[in-house]
Design a protein around this nucleic acid. Structure first.
Length: 484
RNA sequence: GGGCCCGUAGCUCAGCUUGGUAGAGCGGCGGGCUUUUAACCCGUAGGUCCCGGGUUCAAAUCCCGGCGGGCCCGCCA
C-alpha cells in the first residue's frame, strides 16, 4: 500500500530533521549474538542485542516486541515508567520491520519468557515497507516466495532451516572430501565445447573471440584432465547448466559434486558415495532416517550403510518382471512402442534399455537408497566397458526417493575407444539426437598422453539436500530458483 | 508439448452458479489498554475485481481472445 510507504518516508524525514540518523553506521550498544543470550541467559544481567522488529504488542504503558536476528528470536519489553524516553521514541518512530539495537536487563515475564527490559534503544535501519505476513507465518504464493526469497527467509523459520540444510551439505561435503585427501579444484564454466553429460547446453557469445561458447553441463572432462596432469584425487563443487525444463526435480542451474580418483574403479566410488551420504545424514541432520515426500506419501528413508546394490538387469527382473538380457531387439522395440518411448537418433539397444528402465522401474520403485549398476555400454560413452561383459559399462547410479542422486563410472581411459564412442555419438547427432555427446578432440588428445585407471563420481547436491531436508521441490533448496 | 486449476485490498480469501455497480479476517494508520506473545477493544484508510473485446439498460459475475501463475503427465540429474 503506497500510503504505508509514504507514512514511513515521512517518519524518516522527521528523524533526519531532528538530527537522528535513521541509518546509522554501527550499533551504539555492542550487540551480543542471540544464540549466546538464549543459550546461557543470566537473569538480572545487562545485555544488548540488535535485530529486526518482528512483532509489536502494545499494552498501554508497556510494549512487548519480538526482535529477530540471524534466525533467532528474543522478546523485549519497554516499560513507560522505567524508560519513558525510549517508550516515547519507540511509539513515535519505530515500526514493524525496522532494525533496532536495544540495551537492557534480562528478566522473565509472568509466563516465564526470557525478555529484555529495555533501557536504551537506537534505530538501526528504518524500513519503508511492513512485512507482508506476520513473522513465523508462511508466505503462500509460490510466485512471491521464490521471486522475493528474502521475504520468505525473513518470515518463515522453516524456509531458513531448509536452506541451511543445503549450505551445510556443501560445507560437510567439502569437509568429507578434504578428509579423504581430495584436492578441491576449479574448472571453466565457459567452454568452447561442452560435454560430460547428455543435455542441451546454454550458448553464449564471447566478444573477444567473436565465437559461440557454452556454459558447462558437467565438470567431468576437465576434472579428468587433472588426473592426466598428475593430480590423483580431485573434486569440484560447482554449478552446471542444462537448458532443459524447470520442474520439481529440475532447475536449469544446479550444484554438482564431481570427484575423480586415480587407481580406483566404480566399486571404490560406490563405497565413497555411500560413505559421503551417510556422513552428510549424520552431520547435517544428525540421524540416518529421514522422511521425504514421494508422490502423495511421506516415505521413511533409511540412509544407513550399506545401500542395496543391484545390476540394472536384476532391477528389471525384480521390479518389472522382465528378463531384458533374453529379449530380442524386436521385443524391445515392442516394449518401447507400448510405453510410448521414442529414441532420438534412431534405435540403439542399450539406449532403449535405459529408457525402459527409467519408465518401468526408475522413479516408482527406487525409494530406499539403491545402487543400480552395470548400464548398457552404448548408453555411456565416457565409461569403461565392463571387465566381464563388453555389452555393459562399469557404471552405477544411486537412486533415493525415486530420484537419481549420483552417477559414476570406471572412467574410460583408452583414447582409441574414446574416439570411437565419440564418433558413434556424432553419428547419433546427425540422426537427430540433439543431446548426443559432442566429439571432443582436445579431450581425446589428452587421453592419448595416458590417464591412469580412474574412478569418477558425480552427485547432485541439490537433490541430496532435498532428501535430507525432507522437501519435494528442488526450488526449496535453491535460494533463488529460476522462475518462468 | 498435453491435461487440470487459479488471478478480487499489502496478505489469506468470500462474492461468480442465479448479472444490479465491492466484502471479511489479518496487516497498515489513529486512539485505548502495564506481563503480552497469531495479544485484545474502538475507529479509519486502502481496489484498473489480471488485460482486451463481446452480450446486456446494467458485468467481478455470462461469452470470446490474450497475459501471468500453480499443479500433474512426457523429457532431462
Amino acid at each position: 500500500m503506497s500510503g504505508e510507504v509514504e507514512h514511513r518516508k515521512r517518519v524518516r524525514e522527521e528523524l533526519i530533521s531532528k538530527n537522528i540518523n535513521p541509518y546509522p553506521h554501527k550499533p551504539l550498544y555492542q550487540p551480543a549474538s542471540l544464540r549466546s543470550v538464549l543459550d546461557s541467559p543470566v537473569e538480572g544481567a545487562e545485555v544488548a542485542v540488535a535485530g529486526r522488529v518482528a512483532a509489536v504488542r502494545r499494552h498501554g504503558g508497556l510494549v512487548f516486541l519480538d526482535i529477530v536476528d540471524d534466525g533467532l528470536r528474543i522478546q523485549a519489553s519497554i516499560d513507560k515508567s522505567k524508560a519513558g524516553d525510549v517508550f516515547e521514541f519507540f511509539g513515535k518512530y519505530v515500526d514493524l520491520g525496522d532494525f533496532v539495537n536495544v540495551k537492557g536487563v534480562l528478566y522473565r515475564t509472568r509466563r516465564g519468557e526470557l525478555t529484555v527490559d529495555v533501557r536504551g534503544l537506537q534505530l538501526l535501519a528504518k524500513s519503508l515497507r511492513a512485512p507482508p505476513v506476520k513473522y513465523g507465518h508462511r508466505l503462500l504464493d509460490p510466485e512471491v516466495r521464490y521471486r522475493k526469497r528474502y521475504l520468505d527467509m525473513m518470515l518463515t523459520p522453516d524456509v531458513r532451516r531448509v536452506l541451511e540444510v543445503k549450505f551445510k551439505v556443501l560445507e560437510e561435503t567439502r569437509r568429507f572430501m578434504w578428509g579423504k585427501g581430495f584436492v578441491e579444484v576449479e574448472t571453466p564454466v565457459l567452454q568452447p565445447i561442452y560435454g560430460g553429460a547428455e543435455a542441451r547446453p546454454f550458448k553464449t557469445h564471447v566478444w573477444a573471440l567473436n565465437t559461440e561458447w557454452y556454459l558447462r553441463i558437467s565438470l567431468e572432462l576437465h576434472l579428468k584432465r587433472f588426473i592426466i596432469g598428475g593430480f590423483n584425487k580431485v573434486f569440484e563443487i560447482g554449478k552446471v547448466f542444462r537448458n532443459e525444463d524447470i520442474d520439481a526435480q529440475h532447475n536449469p542451474e544446479f550444484t554438482m559434486l564431481e570427484a575423480y580418483q586415480a587407481y580406483a574403479d566404480y566399486n571404490d566410488m560406490m563405497d565413497l558415495t555411500e560413505e559421503l551420504i551417510s556422513h552428510l545424514a549424520e552431520k547435517v541432520v544428525g540421524r540416518n532416517v529421514v522422511e521425504v515426500p514421494v508422490g502423495d506419501v511421506k516415505e521413511r528413508i533409511d540412509l544407513s550403510r550399506p545401500f542395496k546394490r543391484m545390476t540394472m538387469y536384476e532391477a528389471f527382473k525384480e521390479y518389472a518382471g522382465v528378463d531384458v538380457e533374453k529379449l530380442g531387439d524386436d521385443e524391445i522395440r515392442d516394449l518401447l512402442a507400448k510405453n510410448a518411448i521414442s529414441l532420438a537418433g534412431g534405435y540403439d539397444r542399450g539406449r532403449a534399455i535405459v529408457k525402459l528402465f527409467d519408465k518401468l522401474v526408475g522413479r516408482k520403485y527406487l525409494v530406499q537408497p539403491v545402487f543400480i549398476t552395470d548400464y548398457p555400454r552404448s548408453s555411456s560413452p565416457l565409461a569403461k566397458p565392463h571387465r566381464y561383459n563388453p555389452d555393459l559399462a562399469e557404471r552405477f547410479e544411486l537412486f533415493i526417493a525415486g530420484m537419481e542422486i549420483a552417477n559414476a563410472y570406471t572412467e574410460l581411459n583408452d583414447p582409441v575407444l574414446q574416439a570411437e564412442y565419440f564418433r558413434a555419438e556424432e553419428e547419433r547427432r546427425k540422426r537427430g539426437d540433439e543431446e548426443a555427446h559432442p566429439f571432443d578432440w582436445d579431450f581425446v588428445e589428452a587421453l592419448e598422453y595416458g590417464m591412469p585407471p580412474t574412478g569418477g563420481l558425480g552427485v547432485g547436491l541439490d537433490r541430496v539436500s532435498m532428501v535430507l531436508a525432507g522437501v519435494s521441490s528442488i526450488k526449496e533448496v535453491i535460494p533463488f530458483p529460476m522462475m518462468k
